[in-house]
């Protein structure tokens, strides 16, 4: 494992921990999109179907369990916790799941490396992860006033994607035959979705101001 991959995984882990910290300690999920969190839970459930059948390393198995456990518990908190669910911006978080899920499923059925159930589900999870942040970005745009933890959560997710691209470039040059078009293109699309957010995050950081997104 190279340093970019490890740093990517660690920022991904940090993003989830920041979100859980916000929900668990402040008992608030204001500004967090339940739609995005449900999509992530679906992404991990479809991607890690092989968790008990294909052993890669202890690190991989533990990380998979953490991502599955944290994404489902975040969804549980936002839907059912008697205090947390009251802070959920339901009326603002109106993005429809199926607008993202259906096209990704069709695309995975058409474009995949192997037409088997596990492989199509894995490919579907890559396509869906690429666009799963959209409801969150729309919610941020609508609420505009973003608290620090929510801003840091999205920033860390974007950093994770950027680091994964560096990881692929590194692997392409160091490992023979490391070519994964489906992963790369969906990963690139995903990272580009954060570009706009990163621009405003950088501006607010540079000017030492609270993060505001333009209408």
């Amino acid at each position: 494992m190279n340093i970019f991959r490890l740093a990517g995984d660690m920022t991904h882990l940090a993003s989830v921990l920041v979100l859980l910290l916000k929900i668990h300690t402040i008992k608030s999920c204001a500004g967090v999109s339940l739609k995005t969190q449900e999509l992530y839970a679906l992404v991990f459930a479809c991607r890690y179907l092989d968790i008990f059948t294909n052993f890669v390393s202890l690190y991989n198995t533990v990380m998979k369990l953490i991502f599955l456990g944290s994404s489902f518990s975040i969804v549980w908190y936002m839907r059912y916790h008697k205090v947390v669910r009251r802070s959920y911006d339901k009326d603002q978080d109106t993005f429809r799941h199926y607008f993202l899920v259906l096209p990704c499923l069709v695309l995975a059925l058409l474009i995949n490396e192997k037409f088997t159930f596990k492989e199509v589900m894995w490919t579907f999870s890559l396509y869906l992860e690429a666009v799963a942040i959209l409801p969150q970005l729309v919610l941020l745009q609508r609420t505009r006033n973003i608290d620090n933890l929510t801003g840091q959560y999205v920033f860390l997710l974007g950093a994770y994607r950027g680091l994964y691209i560096l990881n692929w470039i590194y692997r392409y040059f160091t490992e023979p035959h490391f070519v994964h078009w489906i992963t790369w293109i969906s990963g690139l699309v995903q990272t580009l979705l954060y570009a706009d957010f990163f621009y405003y995050y950088y501006q607010s950081w540079k000017n030492n101001q609270k993060l505001h997104l333009p209408a």
Partner: peptide
Amino acid sequence: GDKEKGKDEL
């Protein structure tokens, strides 16, 4: 095989 190599990523 080589196609499976990327599957060690999360």
